Amino acid sequence: MNRIHPRTEIGVVQLKISNMETSLRFYQEVIGLKLVRREGAIAELSADGVHPLVVLEENQLFRKQRNRSTSGLYHFAILLPDRRSLGVTLRNLIRHQIPVGQGDHLVSEALYLDDPDGNGIEIYADRPRDTWKRDEHGGIIMTTDPVDVSGLMAISEGISWQGMPAGTKIGHIHLHVGDLHIAEHFYCDIIGFDRITTYGDAALFISAGGYHHHIGLNTWAGKGAPPAPEQAAGLRYYSILIPEEASLQEILNRLEAEGIAFAKLEGQQGAALKDPFGNGIELVVLK
């Protein structure tokens, strides 16, 4: 069986945005990330001030898309280290009068919002892994129930907002795709993620190492949804962090066997490619 390394995680997410000043203000003041580097049309932001999590790519020609009209980004998910941090984040979102959705997924508690260009963001905290429940087939059970908002407010009472804490990372990414079976073959059979659970017949959640999901895939934009056009704001690429070079090479061998094109990354061990729906991916050896 083609399985990706169990310590594989999601890394940087690069987003196409239309106005750098507007987006920097949002990602720093509302989300709580720190500016690491800005050069020309590119800005890198992180939680710890060192390791980038979100990269912004500005072009005034990028335009906000009509919701659920193409394949591409549904949301990227920022994983906080604990529930208290989620409560503090909720307080900051309320302070900035940001419309927020929410969902208790049993394995996690999550808040949902959009950036100024309509890029979907989830901010969440996991429950302890030993509390996750499984179905009769061994799949992790997830659902969408109301979040205990009063509990989040109570646990964060009196704690001042300091931005995203160290230890914050990109927990997962969720994508619109045009065909779930093609997506499953690409991400599971070729890249090597494990199938974790489904949500009806239109969403699949996959991961490495038994996590509830590193990637969500859905056809909620419609079966056969076309790739997002270049001028659309949205996802440029996301990175998959692989702990060992040998594991990367196994993936590259499978890509070659399937005739899927990729290019080697400059300055680091890895490869750049697109999934069957035009979503950019960088496979990177984690150092």
Rank of each mutant, 00 (worst) to 15 (best):
R3S: 06
P227I: 07
L204T: 02
K64V: 09
L73I: 09
R68A: 15
A47T: 03
L56F: 11
L56V: 10
D135C: 08
I123P: 02
E44Y: 14
L79A: 07
K264P: 02
L53K: 14
I140V: 15
V50M: 06
T197D: 09
L217Q: 02
Y27W: 15
V88D: 01
G101C: 01
Y27L: 07
A202V: 13
V30T: 06
D117E: 13
V36D: 10
G120A: 05
G49P: 03
G280Q: 01
G270L: 11
A203L: 07
S46D: 09
Y187C: 08
P81A: 06
G103A: 13
H185I: 06
I170L: 13
I123K: 03
K264N: 12
G209M: 14
F62M: 04
G278R: 07
L79H: 01
M20D: 01
D189I: 09
G11N: 14
G171A: 10
H51W: 09
L111R: 09
A257L: 00
G11Y: 05
E122A: 13
I10W: 05
L93V: 06
T219Q: 03
N92M: 00
D179M: 01
V54T: 06
G224Y: 14
Q97V: 00
G49Y: 07
L35N: 07
N92F: 03
G151P: 07
V107K: 12
V100C: 06
G200K: 00
T8R: 13
S46C: 14
K16S: 03
R91A: 10
V88G: 01
Q102L: 07
I78E: 02
G234C: 04
D114L: 10
E282T: 11
T22K: 11
R129Y: 02
T89Q: 13
A166S: 09
D48T: 02
L86Y: 07
L73N: 06
V88R: 05
Y237G: 03
I173T: 13
W220T: 05
L24Y: 04
E39K: 15
S69H: 14
A208K: 06
Y211F: 12
L175K: 11
I140D: 04
A221M: 08
Q28P: 02
S108E: 08
V177A: 07
L56P: 03
I121F: 05
L217T: 01
S247K: 08
Q28R: 12
E39T: 13
P52M: 15
L35K: 15
R25E: 13
L111K: 11
F26R: 04
L80P: 00
Y237Q: 03
N59C: 04
P128Y: 01
R127K: 12
E109I: 09
G267M: 14
G234V: 11
S46L: 12
K34V: 09
T198P: 00
S156C: 02
R3L: 10
E157N: 14
K64T: 12
R84D: 02
P227F: 01
S156L: 08
V54S: 05
I196D: 12
H75R: 10
N279H: 04
G120P: 04
N119A: 12
P226F: 07
Q14E: 15
S46E: 11
L248E: 08
D201H: 05
A233Q: 03
Y211H: 14
H214C: 12
M142W: 05
N2E: 08
F76A: 09
H174F: 08
I173D: 09
W161G: 00
G259H: 04
T219W: 04
R195D: 00
I182L: 13
M153V: 12
P226Q: 14
G178R: 02
E258Y: 03
G200Y: 02
